[in-house]
Every structure is written in C-alpha cells, then in structure tokens.
C-alpha cells in the first residue's frame, strides 16, 4: 500500500471520529470547503490554470440545489445532483470561453465572468437577491436518512466529500491526469504529440466546476441557506488562499488549507475587517516565503509526495 493511501485511510479514520471531539457544524463547513479547494486545485495544480472565479460554481450550485429542494420539493440527493449539473453546465460555457487565453488572461477572464454571474444572481428573482434562499429543507437522503439529525448529516457530508476527493485522486493518477500534467509542463509539446489540448483543458475545467458544485450544493443543504456571499470575488479569492496555504499541486494540501482558513475565520469572526487584513497578509507571506504551502513543506520533510 502506498504512502498516500495510508494517509488517506488515516484521514478517513479521523473524519469518522472527529464529530465526537469537534463541533460537527464547523467540521461540515470545513469539509465542504475542502472539497471546493480540492476541485480548484485540480485545475491550478495539475493543469496550471488559475481560475479566479471559482465561487460562481460554488454559489450557483448552492442556489440551484436550494431552489430544487425548497420550491420543487426534491429530496436532498436529487437537489445536490441538480446543483452539480448546473455547475457543470456553467463550467462548460465559462470553460469554453476562458481556455481561449492562458496564464494571467485566463485568471482575469474567469474573474470577470464570475463577476457577471454575481450581477446575474443579484438581479434574477429566484435567488432572492440580498436575502438569498433561506430555510432550505434538509429532507431525507434516499428516503431513509433523516438529515435533521446532525450526526447523520455529518456522515452523509463526509461520504460525499470523500467520494469527491477520491474521484479527484483517481483523476490525477489516471492516464488523463498524466496528460493534464504534460499540458501544464509543456503545452506546445503536448500539442505536437497529437493531444487535443483544448479538449483536455475543457474537460478538466468542467470536472473541477462540477466538483465545486457538489461542494456548493452540499453546503446549501447543510446550512439551509444559499446566499450572495458564495458568488462574490472574495469567495473566489478565499479558495485560492486555502489552496495556496495548503500547497498548490499537492493531493492533501487543499484539505489542510481549507481547515486552517475556516478555523481562522471561525476564531476571528468578531474581528470584522481584520480578517481581510490577516488573509491578505497570509497571501503575501505565502507567495514570498512559503510557496510550497503547509503540505508541500511536510512532504519535503518526510521526503515523499503528499
């Protein structure tokens, strides 16, 4: 069994025992963001595309799932599925436009398109504008898992996030993932080897958007709320921060980064705008002196890829 597999089993065990030690609501929030960050990392870490607008997938999936569960009365599993489908469709459109440019232009394009989605969400009636969609029913998963029970809900969320994470892990280690890495390392060479680079990029983008959608839809069901916060550029920046702090292009980095940032925000919640200052300072410190991130440095310490 490989080292990464053992780490994964260890993390799974911690995940199962954690709600008896730590406040489950906090854990569920951090788990959703961990999946969000891992989906983002799939794109930036393995294809080299920095999306500065990933909040649009998180937020739109949240709205879609919330609408499906509340207005259409769908059960939670279908609501989450619907949210994911909406995020994937949005990913198809945005990806097709954004991958026409690379590097810095790609980042600016995704940011601008995300801002367009934000204004769209602000204006259309079904999102509830500034109020968002409130009191989304949690319902019963598959008809028998009552999500009103916090512990049941926690294990459902853990299972969803673990499944998403395993999918990303499989993708990274598949032949498809190898080609993505080849594109990251040397795009002209990948083209000259006969790969349709744009297809691979678009597929990776849609996959990343869909998984970000899973995170957003699950989050909406957990907190029974879908709001504008999740579509703002600040949220897009936050997922960049989580991934950067945890370690760009590492398997476990986004999880570590998400837990650290969410913990930080929970403890600093009363400090208002200082949160912004601290987040910004972490960005600066990470870029200047800590580019490998927490997990990247750990991997260097134990001399194994993590």
């Amino acid at each position: 069994m490989g080292f990464q597999h053992r780490v994964m089993i260890g993390l799974g065990a911690v995940g199962i025992l954690a709600p008896f030690v730590v406040y489950p609501i906090f854990l569920m929030k951090a788990l959703c963001f961990a999946l969000f960050a891992a989906a983002f990392n799939l794109l930036v870490g393995y294809v080299g595309l920095l999306s500065f607008g990933h909040a649009m997938f998180l937020g739109m999936a949240g709205y879609a799932a919330g609408h499906a569960a509340k207005v259409w009365g769908l059960p939670p599993e279908l609501a989450i599925l619907f949210g994911t489908a909406v995020a994937a469709a949005l990913g198809l459109v945005v990806g097709a436009i954004a991958i026409r440019r690379q590097g810095i232009y790609f980042a600016m394009t995704t940011l601008a398109l995300a801002q367009m989605v934000y204004f769209f969400c602000l204006q259309v009636p079904f999102t509830g504008g500034e109020d968002g969609i409130q009191a989304i029913p949690r319902g019963r998963m598959f008809g028998f898992l009552d999500l009103a029970d916090t512990l049941t809900l926690y294990y459902v969320v853990l299972a969803i996030v673990a499944a998403g994470f395993l999918l990303i892990y499989r993708t990274i280690h598949s032949p498809f993932g190898q080609i993505l890495k080849a594109i990251r390392e040397n795009e002209p060479r990948a083209i000259s080897l006969g790969y349709r680079v744009d297809h691979y990029k678009l597929l990776a983008f849609i996959l990343s958007a869909a998984l970000a959608g899973v995170a957003g839809a699950t989050k909406a069901i957990v907190f029974q709320l879908a709001s504008l916060t999740d579509v703002t550029w600040q949220m897009s920046g936050e997922v960049v921060l989580m991934t950067l702090l945890g370690g760009l292009g590492t398997v476990f980095g986004p999880i570590a980064g998400a837990f650290i940032v969410i913990a930080l925000e929970t403890y600093l919640a009363q400090m208002g705008s200082w949160v912004l200052v601290i987040q910004g300072a972490i960005f600066v410190v990470c870029v200047l002196t800590f580019r490998r991130g927490v997990v990247g440095e750990l991997a260097r310490l134990v001399n194994r890829p993590l």
């Binding site: 949160v275 200052v277 910004g280 600066v284 200047l288």
Partner: peptide, 27 residues
C-alpha cells in the same frame, strides 16, 4: 523577488496586498 517565478505569483501577491489595504481602510 517574483520576476523569475510564474506570473501568477505576482497576481496572488498583489491580490493579498489589495486585501490588506482594503481591510485596513475598512477598519
């Protein structure tokens, strides 16, 4: 210190600085 690195680090650093400045003024 960033000129030799990927362009994206410059974007991330200046984004962080923007957050710091905005946070301080908002405070």
């Amino acid at each position: 210190h960033l000129y030799k690195l990927d362009h994206l680090y410059g974007l991330l650093l200046t984004f962080g600085l923007a957050l710091v400045v905005q946070g301080l003024f908002q405070n």
